[in-house]
């Protein structure tokens, strides 16, 4: 749509983005506040960051969260890539409707239900709850997100490339490894990142499926937040926001650069042929 960009548009964008970003900005600013009162500015200080790093309960929880995040998102990426491939290239098979239903349903399922049902499963088979059960739970719901990301990439690329590889004597596995995988790699990477942030972020499902010795960071933050605002939580949140923003921005730079490089190579190839 090409319309004149009016004052009305500029105002609504400014107000809209202020609404989206001001709360986070205030939180970050007040993590450097000297005072324990979180709404009154009393001078610059980094003491709340020191107290975060000296708080072993936070550090333990961060370690559990990181472990769960890395393992579960890796499992989710493998399973999600497989199921995304099956959804797009798998053709017909028995129970395909059920399969796609099970892929899409977790995306809209309320977390309380997913958490409750997994907990009841773990209890009824007598599995001890801990890091392992959180990993299973997180891998299950995030594989569906990975699958959606990967299959949308697969839909958009030309199938004849794979067929050419097969005609030239590749085994299906070789064709997947040397043709399909490089093409869908950006989707697989962003799928992993998505799964990882979903796992870092999850409070409800982790609360249901964790055991006594496996408190994740969101669970820890939630139990503190219920007691009220604290500058220590502001500092911890600022650290988390910083880490995630660096991750997201560098990931988008990497994919942008690889896209630019690929375009340059394609142009060279076209130039060489002419």
């Amino acid at each position: 749509m090409n319309r004149r960009f009016t004052w009305f548009n500029a105002t609504s964008l400014t107000l809209g983005f202020a609404f989206l970003y001001l709360p986070i900005l205030i939180l970050i600013i007040f993590s450097f506040n000297e005072s324990k009162l979180v709404t009154v500015w009393a001078g610059f200080s980094t003491k709340w960051y020191a107290s975060v790093f000296n708080n072993t309960a936070f550090l333990d929880a961060a370690l559990v969260t990181l472990k769960v995040g890395v393992i579960s998102s890796t499992i989710a990426t493998v399973l999600g890539t497989m199921s995304g491939y099956v959804m797009v290239r798998g053709g017909r098979f028995r129970g395909r409707t059920l399969f796609s239903g099970m892929i899409y349903a977790p995306l809209v399922m309320p977390e309380v239900i997913t958490g409750l049902s997994l907990l009841l499963l773990f209890i009824s088979i007598g599995m001890d709850r801990g890091v392992f059960t959180i990993v299973l739970a997180h891998a299950t719901f995030s594989m569906c997100y990975v699958s959606v990301v990967v299959s949308s990439r697969l839909v958009s690329f030309d199938r004849s490339l794979e067929e050419a590889a097969l005609d030239l004597g590749c085994t299906p596995f070789d064709a997947f490894r040397s043709v399909t995988l490089p093409i869908i790699a950006p989707a697989v990477i962003s799928g992993w990142l998505l799964a990882f942030t979903l796992s870092l972020d999850d409070l409800v499902i982790a609360s249901f499926t964790s055991g006594p010795s496996s408190t994740t960071l969101p669970m820890k933050i939630f139990s503190q937040v219920r007691l009220g605002v604290s500058p220590e939580i502001n500092a911890l949140s600022t650290l988390l926001i910083g880490i995630v923003s660096i991750g997201v921005i560098s990931a988008s730079l990497v994919t942008k650069r690889s896209a630019v490089r690929r375009r340059a190579q394609e142009q060279q190839a076209v130039g060489g042929a002419a």
């Binding site: 983005f17 709360p23 709404t39 409070l203 926001i241 995630v244």
Partner: peptide, 21 residues
């Protein structure tokens, strides 16, 4: 990008940030 970016930051933290406001 500006619309999507908050989606990547923790849901819990975004909700929490409103208590102080």
């Amino acid at each position: 990008m500006l619309v999507i970016l908050p989606f990547w930051t923790s849901f819990l933290i975004r909700v929490y940030s409103w208590i102080g406001i």
